[in-house]
Amino acid sequence: MTPPELSTSPPVTASTDPAPRVIAADAPFIVVMNAGSGRRQSDETRAALDDILGRAGRKFEVRLVADPSQLADTARQAVRDAKAQNAVVVGAGGDGTLCAVAEAVLGSGCAFAVLPRGTFNYFSRDHGIPADPAESIRLLLDARAFPVQVGFLNERMFLVNASLGLYPKLLEDREIYKRQFGRSRLIALWSAAVTLLRTHRHLRLHIEHDGTMHEVRTSTLFVSNNRLQLEQIGMAEAPQLERGLLAAIAPRAIGRLAQLGLTLRGAAGRMSDADNVISFAFKRITVTHQSKRQRPVKVATDGEINWIIMPLEFRVAPEPLFLLKPEADVANANRS
């Protein structure tokens, strides 16, 4: 629901979007690949690249990142080399890996492409990019680069979502369960249920939106830049993302069982029907804690956990990321 005290920002018209870019037929590809997805998956991806791009006569190179702390530096070097070679920078991995590579690409003038290798792959699915390795690689050969919206939490970019409060804890616990039991959506859902049944504290936040300050008491503030994710949980703000806005969701302070029930309602695609959920679309908001103390808070951006000192500013990036993706009709068919 959208409470009366939190209004939706005016939409941005589609006519302001830059035109899509045609990629040169001989443009090479520099692939930044996260080795954390597993040796077998990395080998399969490399073999598919050799087969499909090799037969098409397209040059490419793979830069495998074994140490996650080196991902950002590797991505920045890939962008520098891509600018010199008129190449396309390709991220291969889950949403966190794709975000790290995309952050290096944004504003560089280079086109960006993805080979989805994660558990949920919300970013690629939202833009109609196939999960099948061979299909996503073939897409590189003839797709145009379309402008897509990205968000920022202070200086950290996000492609899918950013959050503070309970949601980062859910992600941390999910990673522990994945290391123990493997990567699957079922494990992720089970981990979430266990976490929600534990005791959790509520946040007392001040949210400045459109020049007005509002007090919100919630377990988590979740900001989405992904229409597919919002549609899956049944949020009415999903279409607003295509109008240049982000969507915020904050459940009102409720108990553990009620929190679990709200999560189940979201899994059934009916969260917008809940009376205890605040939701609104916006272009920029500033979030502070009621205590006014400048203290670090745990945040998550596309699954990556960090500590940031308040105030927190969530905003739409002023420039788009140019993503190789299918034409609109094909993308809509591939979003499920």
Rank of each mutant, 00 (worst) to 15 (best):
D210Q: 15
G234Y: 01
H209P: 00
A84D: 06
A104N: 08
R174E: 02
A113R: 00
G244T: 13
R335I: 12
A92V: 01
N306D: 15
D302P: 02
E5R: 10
T212F: 07
R265V: 06
A102S: 11
V150Y: 00
Q229W: 08
Q232H: 09
A87S: 06
L324S: 04
I309H: 14
M271W: 09
P296I: 15
E237W: 00
A258P: 04
G54S: 07
A188M: 07
V287C: 06
A188P: 00
R80Q: 14
G261L: 00
D95V: 13
L246F: 10
M1A: 09
A143T: 04
A48L: 03
A134M: 01
Y177N: 00
L196I: 02
R198G: 12
R185D: 08
G182F: 11
Q232E: 13
S279D: 03
A35L: 04
S124M: 13
F123C: 04
S336D: 08
T288Y: 06
R40K: 14
I305A: 02
K169D: 15
L262Y: 04
V79G: 05
R125V: 02
L323Q: 11
R76Y: 05
D142N: 11
H214C: 00
Q85V: 05
V89Y: 04
S37R: 12
S272G: 15
T195I: 04
G182H: 11
A104S: 01
R198Q: 14
S291W: 08
G266D: 12
D73Y: 00
R227M: 12
L205M: 02
K325W: 00
T301A: 13
H206G: 02
L49C: 10
G36K: 09
L170I: 15
T97E: 05
T74K: 03
V160G: 01
W190R: 10
T119P: 01
G109T: 11
T286I: 09
F314I: 11
L139Y: 06
A48Y: 10
T8P: 00
Q70D: 14
T286H: 07
S136A: 15
N154F: 03
V277K: 08
F123T: 00
S191D: 09
P239M: 05
L257C: 07
F29G: 06
D126N: 14
F152G: 02
A248M: 13
R252H: 10
F29N: 07
P311W: 14
Q229A: 12
V316L: 00
L205G: 02
D273L: 09
N121Y: 05
D67V: 08
R315E: 01
L257G: 02
V79R: 08
A48M: 13
I278Q: 05
N225Q: 04
T288R: 15
V31S: 07
K59Y: 04
L262I: 07
D73P: 00
E215I: 03
N161A: 15
L260Q: 04
A25V: 12
Q290D: 14
F158P: 01
A111G: 06
L197D: 01
G266C: 07
R270F: 01
L262H: 13
D210L: 15
A35F: 02
V194Y: 04
H209Q: 09
P28Q: 07
R63K: 13
Q229D: 05
S272V: 03
I254T: 08
R39T: 15
I278K: 00
A247H: 03
E327D: 14
F181W: 13
N226W: 06
A268Y: 01
W307C: 07
